[in-house]
Design a protein around this nucleic acid. Sequence first.
DNA 1: CCCGACCAATACCGATTGGGTATGCCTGCG
DNA 2: CGCAGGCATACCCAATCGGTATTGGTCGGG
Lengths: 90, 90
Amino acid sequence: MSLSQLEGFVAIVEEGSVGRAAKRLHVSQPPLSRRLRSLEEELGVLLLERHARGVRLLPAGERLLPYARQVLATIDAARHVVGDDVGDDG
Amino acid sequence: MSLSQLEGFVAIVEEGSVGRAAKRLHVSQPPLSRRLRSLEEELGVLLLERHARGVRLLPAGERLLPYARQVLATIDAARHVVGDDVGDDG
DNA sequence: CCCGACCAATACCGATTGGGTATGCCTGCG
DNA sequence: CGCAGGCATACCCAATCGGTATTGGTCGGG
């Protein structure tokens, strides 16, 4: 499990399509498709259902989604706290 | 920023030493040392102070630590929710 | 049914990253 | 100074990652 996988998963869900998400993340479609695939394999469950009009969230994906977002949000917050010099009294 | 970097950082802090943390993570010392280094470079701040008796947390490291733990805990929780089949009604 | 458009999956290749071993430098002790 | 402990660096090899080209499957039009 990597942050790239989680970021890709969230983007795919939000865009409803791997290709769309790929553009958003500035990568091409195949690598992103593989990222999702490897995430599913590692977790041992299918996260999204692929069909001709894009992808669709499966139950396991719905359960994972909030955690994935939480992780990304925490990462983002972490970047801020270390980059900022604020203290308790400042 | 990667989960490996965060995991390494937390382990190094908890063990107070890169070598110790390396054993705990089942990797050798040099790769783990580089992981920490690359994390610091990416964030643009020093997280730990190296000295002859091990390492010591710097202010930026102290700020990062809870976020790093939060991320790892969320990842762990995520693995459980997707691997488990529990629903709202039991 | 056949064709074209759209979308995800796979094959293949080159670049980057990551880990391991060997080694160097610094620090603390007697 | 000689010994011990610990992090950093150099170098090599394998694994991972990203990009291009291509395939397979589905939906809409004639």
